[in-house]
Design a protein around this nucleic acid. Structure first.
Lengths: 69, 69
DNA sequence: AATAATTTATCGTTTTTCGATAAATATATA
DNA sequence: TATATATTTATCGAAAAACGATAAATTATT
């Protein structure tokens, strides 16, 4: 079975935004955002996901993707 | 602030698959899949999301989208 | 009308985010 | 090289929320 992977790194580079800056805008700690960025979570609350999409001006598909294997 | 919306309905119509059938394939109860389908949840586990993508042969962006307002 | 499919409603258990904090590692800069 | 800054890792605890089980209600379908 495939899995869901987070691709926050890409968008952050594209938007030229640092982890701390994004964490601030999203409203979560940089520690937790780091976890999200590095696929150390097994779910994300929609409220958090929405805040990320808002801050990065992108859609869910730019951040979350299903990866077959 | 915008919000995350689930668009399972679209893909289910497109794939011509019933709720019960999809619930079976995904491995969760039809009750819970109904909630997911009707935006009654505020998060989804990646394991569940992956199973849905697998069953519907689609990607995350087809199911989850950020809706500005 | 009868049957099947979907949705709503509770309740309980389990999972997991997220915060707080401290420490470690990596990166940049003087 | 030394120092500051940024990112990651590690615990611990609390709060949030998925998901299961079950029953009931509502909505299609035949």
């Amino acid at each position: 079975m495939g899995k869901i992977v987070l691709r926050l790194d890409r968008m952050m580079v594209e938007r030229k935004i640092s982890l701390n800056e994004l964490a601030d805008r999203v409203g979560i700690t940089n520690v937790n955002l780091s976890k999200i960025k590095n696929n150390k979570v097994t779910a994300v609350r929609f409220s958090t996901l929405a805040a990320i999409c808002e801050a990065l001006d992108c859609n869910v598909g730019d951040i979350l993707e299903y990866q077959k294997d």
